[in-house]
Nucleic acid binder design. Structure first.
Lengths: 222, 222
DNA sequence: TAACACCATACAGATTTCTGTATAGCACTA
DNA sequence: TAGTGCTATACAGAAATCTGTATGGTGTTA
């Protein structure tokens, strides 16, 4: 089993909880804690340079901002920087996020090794995740593997995303059309945009533009 | 100090963390845990009926939904139901939420006794909060008292919230007007609603309804 | 009490949204 | 190759949004 672990989590009580689980349920005692991304990075760097690197990083994604100015403001920044230095360290992300596309992105783009959703079954999942990652597996959260269908069925292409984005930014379809033309993006006919948005209404069962944006924001797609 | 406490928090690791703090830092050992609102309510009810009521409830606001169907789905439901039965129990809410208006609402509308923001300083704050509430104080989180200005300058009343909510749900202003009339809520003139929404545009610097809803969703007010 | 500010409401006009119908092009296939 | 389905586009009309102006009521204050 891992012997040396770094936990990056700004939320103190959760941090304590993780350490408790690692100690008592998995038997890892050499656990270091960090409440800021920059702090985590420095700790990582120090041990790495001393030739006693951490074997596992467990990190949250979102870190609350406070008076301390940080160069890294999210777990993603932290992961990026650590991966650059040490491609071998195992990384488990442990966060609120439960959107399949976001989680998949972490595995694809930042080659994390495991993901645990904060939630009711976090303890059991964390234990399984640490064990799985130790054996070299990629460990996806059960929440994700069970219902891939629903959220991923509606496929949104680039134009759809641009439209949603610009509508949410308060632009009219005419304005959006002009922007598209200016950026040489096709299609950009006025009625095509109308039709695209209408199709999004169908996809998301929205009654109008405002409703559409509200739904998409709630789904976390925007 | 309190001797009998109920902790309602679906997120296991945090739940552990709270118990640890209550045990080790405040010296409360009779701590019961619940991971679902309904479960918390039943535990509360049982002890109350046995004439050995909890003196303090520490609860989260948001509970993740899962296969278990719950009649109470949020901490607010739980608080409402518990307050109905026992107006004397002290309640500390302990949540992600950091919007001043939401937190104030909890004190005003549900007469909670304390609030702690999940975050970097949650342990210290929780300790201070429990001690303050024990002495009969209302304990607001330091995050709130320090910068009331910014976010609270825009005061949203009930009607504003209804309008935002219904617009986000895709209803037209005419439909909303009819709903207001049906529920005997005044004012409900067509142009009044127009004017109210226009004022919200000003407040949030929104260009149109869609933009407004997007902004408010991002701010977490909806 | 008179002046002033604020709010609910009405009305009207310009703009935008939403929907339906219609045409043309492109790709696939029987 | 003719038929079918999909997409981009145009146009048009009904409905909704947005904005400006105007009026009457209420409450505050000089």
């Amino acid at each position: 089993m891992f012997t040396k672990v770094l936990v990056a989590e700004d939320y103190e009580i959760a941090n304590q909880g993780i350490v408790k689980v690692l100690n008592e349920k998995i038997g890892i005692h050499n656990v270091h804690q960090a409440k800021y991304c920059d702090d985590a990075y420095l700790k990582f760097r120090k041990e790495y340079n001393d030739n006693a690197p951490f074997e596992l990083l467990i990190t949250d994604l979102s870190f609350r901002k406070d008076y301390k100015i940080q160069t890294r403001t999210s777990g993603i920044d932290l992961i990026k920087d650590i991966r650059k230095v040490d491609p071998d360290i195992k990384i488990i992300v442990y966060s609120q996020e439960d959107r399949p596309d976001r989680i998949n992105m972490l595995f694809d783009k930042y080659s994390i090794n495991g993901y645990v959703c904060k939630g009711q079954h976090a303890i059991k999942q964390l234990i399984q995740c640490v064990e799985g990652v130790f054996q070299g597996d990629e460990v996806y959260p059960p929440e994700l593997t069970s219902n891939l269908q629903a959220s991923d069925m509606v496929h949104l292409d680039d134009l759809d995303m641009i439209l949603l984005e610009e509508l949410a930014n308060g632009f009219t379809k005419k304005e959006i059309r002009l922007k598209l033309i200016a950026q040489n993006i096709t299609p950009n006919g006025e009625s095509t945009i109308d039709k695209r948005v209408s199709k999004l209404f169908d996809n998301f069962k929205a009654k109008n533009t405002t409703h559409l944006v509200a739904i998409v924001k709630d789904l976390g797609l925007l």
